[in-house]
Design a protein around this nucleic acid. Sequence first.
DNA 1: AGAAACATGTAAGGTGTTACATGATTCG
DNA 2: CGAATCATGTAACACCTTACATGTTTCT
Lengths: 172, 172
Amino acid sequence: MSLRHALLGLLADRPSSGYDLMKLFDTTLASVWKATQSQVYGELTRMTDAGLVEVAAEGPRGRKEYALLPDGRAELQRWLTTPAQPQPLRSEWMLRVFFLGFLPAEQAREQLEGMAEAEARQIVELEALLASRDWTGDPLSVSGRLVLEYGLRGSAMKQEWARWALGELPAS
Amino acid sequence: MSLRHALLGLLADRPSSGYDLMKLFDTTLASVWKATQSQVYGELTRMTDAGLVEVAAEGPRGRKEYALLPDGRAELQRWLTTPAQPQPLRSEWMLRVFFLGFLPAEQAREQLEGMAEAEARQIVELEALLASRDWTGDPLSVSGRLVLEYGLRGSAMKQEWARWALGELPAS
DNA sequence: AGAAACATGTAAGGTGTTACATGATTCG
DNA sequence: CGAATCATGTAACACCTTACATGTTTCT
């Protein structure tokens, strides 16, 4: 249940409302873990019941500011120090590639070209993001920089792979 | 619903039983899409109800051999030619990296080193797989080779990234 | 005053995981 | 004859997505 751990991690940085947390998922965590509004609010309620977090303050418009409790901090530490299991991959992109042979050569090429272009656009976006912020200072900035670099290298790899794969395809 | 499309693709190559399909998920498709036994059997029943596949033959031990119907083939083609949407990433690895700053420097290093080692092992495995088969011939072999190369490049990227990240971490 | 942003929640339906449950056939 | 493999299925539970539903505060 990584959603729970993502929330614990964000709350370890600072107390936040469900609304704040949602925005963090849509922005800083976007390339790492995604979550919907329903999920965030529901999980916060369950975490409160489980004694991991508490409503530390209430604000205007029914705002509830959640803060980490000792059990929550302990669970976060436990998770961070447990060696991660190799994760089962599920890539719709690669699933399509696997069945590329069922398409006429021309259409197979188009798919790969589209993939290379999508990654090129992604790189432009990530580089803009890299230039737009100061990545030194607090811990989440430093690791945010690590994650961003991972995204950049991943996109570059995919793009290069797609171009290589075009050469491997039987000529159209 | 990519499980459905994965099954359609495999059945387009050859008629198979649920048991056969499961093995394909565990072996050739392991790095691309994973599925459990429950899922495969359940989805095959739903696909039969939807008129995409049929039980073309029955064998010993209650074996049911499924084959693609015209509607199933059409759905596979439709899926393959629809441009893929950018997929929301969910990487538990990167989520952990994002919160690495909450660990003492020494333990953060250990996590990154563990990651680099895991990828090194993966590369050895994939290279053995690459050497063990003939990757020319039928369409699924050719694209299987493309997918394998993707896995290799992905692991190399992750390994290099982890080593770079070690250098970015504040010294312990 | 109206729009945008803030703020929370529920419900239905889909997808995935784990565990249970059963039996037939083949191979040594 | 016993073990391994072949072969299918169900049930409970966890998790995720989409859509609906509602109300407040701030800004222009």
